[in-house]
């Protein structure tokens, strides 16, 4: 199995910072969306709609760097960037980073770090949703929502993660493999 070298470490960090900088514009969108949904008691929905964007660094790093741990490290570093760029959630950002990163890492573990195609991305989106949702059940008290509302939150989260972590990541990696910078493994 491939080991981490200096170049890969720098690459995953620069990638995480790029994602952090690109997503920085999403912050105000999240706040506005939360404020709009809050009066109806639907604030968690803002989180679910946008979650896919925040977890994108994981599958993208996993797909490009292809070393065990890449997805987790990419997402964790993304959280570090957010923390030092002035995000307020601090320590819980780091924990969420590891949870989200491990969620998408599971997708790559399940395909043995050998297949890098649609299947991997779909599995990764599914594992990310399940792992992060389990975390939310405890951390944000999701466990005390009514079942119907919970099912709605889960579905929205999966769609978001699938669109950004799956479809968008696939489109990006298609461009990369057409440019011959990433090997296309079927």
């Amino acid at each position: 199995m491939k080991a981490w070298h200096l170049r890969d470490i720098i690459l995953v960090t620069i990638l995480a910072i790029f994602m952090g900088v690109i997503f920085f514009v999403i912050g105000p969108v999240y706040t506005i969306l939360s404020a709009a949904l809050a009066p109806a008691g639907l604030q968690p929905l803002a989180n679910e709609i946008l979650l896919g964007i925040w977890v994108m660094a994981g599958p993208l790093a996993g797909f490009i760097i292809r070393i065990p741990g890449a997805a987790t490290l990419g997402e964790l570093l993304g959280a570090v960037v957010e923390m030092f760029l002035g995000g307020v959630w601090g320590a819980s950002t780091l924990i969420s980073g590891v949870v989200q990163g491990f969620g998408s890492e599971l997708g790559f573990i399940l395909t043995g770090y050998k297949r890098y195609n649609w299947l991997t991305l779909v599995i990764s989106a599914l594992t990310t949703t399940i792992v992060t949702f389990t975390w939310s059940l405890f951390k944000e008290g999701y466990a005390s929502y009514h079942l119907g509302f919970l099912a709605m939150l889960f579905t929205v989260r999966f769609i978001s993660v699938f669109l950004f972590g799956g479809v968008l990541t696939k489109l990006i990696t298609n461009l990369l493999s057409r440019a011959h910078v990433v090997k296309n493994v079927r």
């Binding site: 990638l15 690109i22 968008l168 440019a179």
Partner: peptide, 27 residues
């Protein structure tokens, strides 16, 4: 936009380029 693959594509190419240069410089 945040959802444009082109934006990420170009950012990733730059990231690869810079990480090559930076690691060579450090070595």
């Amino acid at each position: 936009h945040v959802w444009s693959p082109q934006l990420y594509f170009k950012a990733i190419l730059t990231a690869m380029h810079w990480s090559d240069q930076l690691s060579l410089a450090m070595v």
